[in-house]
């Protein structure tokens, strides 16, 4: 069974934010909610690196572990989804998530946050695939259409990869080997993709 994962290659990410707007586009995400973002560390200094980050669909999802109403579920493809009908907007998933993935439409007084929203790996939610109800709550369900997340599909430099973890990792490994071959004695490449140990280490 495929185990879906995201991978961001920091050697290629140029912070063009295509992943961010592709997501907005595909799911009609309102202003202020960003299921995906690009972070640049050491901005403007040597060693500057950019990384695109969203829900990583962790193996042992912290959000699911702390949700008081158990609204998360993991699909057969390893995609972590949630049920907005159940979500009470408590924010615990936000506290727990290492990646800052959970988003809330509001940030009101008395803890009024609205229903949590996050990256669905373009896999919608519990409603019927691509029903208007599903679209309204979670955006488009590309997985049901046999497609992959649009952010990765539209990545300008193919830095962001999405799909079966084994295949994605293999693609990345080949790329690393090619780069190391190309730049002998040059910059050494890290062995595991960014964030994978946090997201996918089996417990």
């Amino acid at each position: 069974m495929a185990r879906m994962k995201f991978l961001c290659d920091d050697e290629r990410c140029i912070e063009c934010n295509a992943c961010v707007t592709a997501c907005k586009n595909e799911h009609e995400i309102p202003w202020g909610v960003n299921r995906r973002r690009v972070v640049t560390i050491d901005d403007g200094q040597p060693g500057e690196k950019s990384i695109s980050v969203a829900c990583m669909h962790c193996s042992d999802a912290p959000c699911a572990a702390v949700c008081p109403v158990d609204c998360f579920y993991t699909t057969d493809d390893g995609i972590v989804l949630h049920d907005k009908n159940l979500c009470i907007g408590c924010g615990y998933c936000l506290y727990a998530c290492p990646f800052g993935a959970p988003q809330f439409p509001q940030d009101g007084l008395f803890g009024v946050r609205g229903k949590m929203d996050k990256c669905t790996f373009c896999a919608g939610g519990p409603e019927a695939d691509n029903s208007p109800e599903e679209f309204e709550k979670y955006g488009r369900n590309r997985i049901a259409e046999g497609k992959l997340p649009l952010c990765a599909e539209m990545c300008s430099t193919k830095a962001l990869l999405a799909g079966d973890g084994d295949i994605v990792a293999e693609l990345f490994r080949e790329r690393v080997i090619r780069r190391e071959g190309a730049n002998e004695g040059g910059r050494r490449q890290s062995g595991a993709p960014w964030g994978w140990n946090t997201a996918y280490r089996k417990s």
Binding site: G32, N34, V39, D43, A65, C97, P98, G195, T198
Partner: peptide
């Protein structure tokens, strides 16, 4: 780091304390 996405701690890639809290 820097992120064009505005929002609370949007520039933070990984928050390690979430795991402790959990």
């Amino acid at each position: 780091g820097y992120s064009a996405v505005q929002g609370r701690e949007s520039g933070m890639l990984i928050q390690s304390t979430g795991q402790d809290w959990r």
